[in-house]
Measured scan of single mutants.
Amino acid sequence: MAAGGDHGSPDSYRSPLASRYASPEMCFVFSDRYKFRTWRQLWLWLAEAEQTLGLPITDEQIQEMKSNLENIDFKMAAEEEKRLRHDVMAHVHTFGHCCPKAAGIIHLGATSCYVGDNTDLIILRNALDLLLPKLARVISRLADFAKERASLPTLGFTHFQPAQLTTVGKRCCLWIQDLCMDLQNLKRVRDDLRFRGVKGTTGTQASFLQLFEGDDHKVEQLDKMVTEKAGFKRAFIITGQTYTRKVDIEVLSVLASLGASVHKICTDIRLLANLKEMEEPFEKQQIGSSAMPYKRNPMRSERCCSLARHLMTLVMDPLQTASVQWFERTLDDSANRRICLAEAFLTADTILNTLQNISEGLVVYPKVIERRIRQELPFMATENIIMAMVKAGGSRQDCHEKIRVLSQQAASVVKQEGGDNDLIERIQVDAYFSPIHSQLDHLLDPSSFTGRASQQVQRFLEEEVYPLLKPYESVMKVKAELCL
């Protein structure tokens, strides 16, 4: 049975990233139509530049190519590739079939990587351009969430054990800070992308030097003109047959890092959902379990974690691919890159769409948070109580021993009897502590235990987050809708 299948058929496997999760716009960027249309555009740009620099290419040939950029006979191309065992030459023939007058000058002087690699770089750039505003929107939604809850005390956790208090907004800023680093890295790697350009079979530009009869300047002009037509500021000066596969490492490393950030955020949300302090959106008709109707599973956060793990592992592909590119190139890269580049971007696209949807509907339960604080705060307040007693004339050592005994009794009630923490009640009825009984409410005010959390939130948002989001103001209103 021949390899390949009808990918629109229910009898043929289709990647869930495309069929179930990723956005239509990201799927289109990695589609065959987008790819092969870009090949034709690159052939047109090459012909236009070659004509401008004096090669015998007519206006009629150029116009014929322009008129057929979208006229792609995919069936013919597939048949040609089956016959020739070469995808680029299959599309040269297919393009030439609908451009008979231009057929002889299509791909003039070029090698397969002229269309293959340059198209990949265009796709990487455009895919990054799709991700950047999506990530900015996630940051914006979380920034709104953090600002609104900047002063809401909550129990902090280290080692997932109760620690000092923080605020809900401050905790959210930990998430935002990681995503801001990801946004900066995505922008950097996007701006650092260079075009492969017009380089020939081993990167020496020998074929173009021959076409222009040894004119170095025209060869350099050709490279520059096509690079500018493709919208790049610069091209690699040095290439082998391909652009260095280190570029793929750079791009997928940034995406993998984004995956790590999203995994951490969504894990926190899942843990908070278990504590009943916070939940992701839950639709009115949504079913959490087929057997347990009360369940409210954090399905979206779980999906993000599941896909983020996949995204983090994909960076190993370009690392290994770059390491086995012998001399000017081997074909070890080809099949692998067809999979890992598309999957990385479709996965990143999915987790950003999902995280935006989550961040637009996060639900906080202040009463649950308050109750958990009441359970733990008495123990945390013991040092403040000791200091207040010393100020009232008591002995630190005597007070410490009193607190120690009462704390152990209260802990026994919590752990052995399943009761509430009654340390404060014990202190309130103990005559030894009568000098500070009137101060206990103040000493137990949760806001006095959150330090500068709310001020940190305000400063972080104003100095770091809002300036970073400013270039994306025009796209901030787009909502994230999930079908599944």
Rank of each mutant, 00 (worst) to 15 (best):
A2W: 08
A3G: 09
G5Y: 13
H7C: 10
G8L: 15
P10M: 13
D11V: 11
S12I: 15
R14L: 14
L17V: 14
Y21P: 04
P24Q: 09
C27Y: 12
F36G: 12
R37K: 12
R37M: 14
Q41V: 07
W45Y: 13
W45C: 07
L46H: 05
Q51D: 04
Q51L: 07
T52A: 13
T52D: 11
T58K: 07
T58G: 07
E64C: 10
K66V: 07
N68P: 10
D73A: 09
F74M: 15
A78K: 08
E79G: 12
E80D: 13
E80K: 09
M89G: 05
A90V: 12
A103I: 09
G104V: 13
I106H: 04
L108E: 01
G109K: 01
T111G: 02
C113M: 05
Y114L: 03
V115N: 04
I123E: 07
D129R: 07
L135H: 08
S140D: 09
S140C: 13
R141V: 15
L142G: 02
K147I: 11
K147V: 12
P153R: 02
P153K: 03
H159P: 00
Q164H: 04
T166H: 07
V168R: 02
V168Y: 05
L174Q: 14
D178T: 06
M181E: 11
Q184V: 09
Q184E: 15
L186F: 12
K187I: 15
D191H: 08
G197V: 01
T202G: 12
T202I: 08
T202A: 13
T202C: 09
T204P: 00
S207C: 11
L209C: 07
L209R: 08
Q210T: 14
E213V: 14
H217Y: 15
K218A: 11
K224I: 08
M225G: 08
V226A: 04
E228S: 07
A230L: 03
G231H: 12
F232C: 04
F232A: 01
F236D: 05
F236K: 04
L252C: 12
S253L: 10
S253Q: 11
K264R: 13
I265G: 05
T267Q: 13
D268H: 08
I269E: 00
I269L: 06
L271C: 07
L272A: 10
A273I: 06
L275K: 03
E277P: 01
E277N: 02
P281D: 12
Q286G: 02
G288D: 01
S290A: 04
A291E: 02
M292S: 04
M292Q: 02
P293V: 01
K295E: 04
R300F: 07
S301K: 02
S301I: 13
R309E: 02
T313P: 08
L314V: 09
L314K: 08
L314P: 03
V315M: 12
P318H: 00
P318K: 01
Q320M: 11
A322M: 12
R329C: 02
R329N: 02
T330M: 02
A335M: 07
R337G: 01
R337Q: 03
T350I: 14
T350Y: 12
L352E: 05
T354F: 05
S359R: 14
Y365F: 15
Y365L: 07
P366N: 09
K367N: 14
V368P: 03
R374L: 05
R374P: 02
R374T: 06
P378I: 07
A381P: 01
I385V: 11
M387H: 05
M389G: 10
V390Q: 10
V405P: 11
S407N: 04
A411K: 10
K415I: 06
K415L: 07
Q416Y: 13
E417I: 06
G418S: 03
G419R: 13
N421V: 10
R426A: 10
Q428F: 11
A431G: 11
Y432E: 09
F433T: 06
S438A: 14
Q439T: 11
D441E: 13
D441I: 08
D441N: 09
H442L: 11
L443P: 00
L444S: 05
S448G: 14
A453T: 10
S454K: 15
R459M: 12
F460G: 02
L461G: 03
E464V: 06
Y466H: 12
Y472T: 13
E473G: 14
K477Y: 14
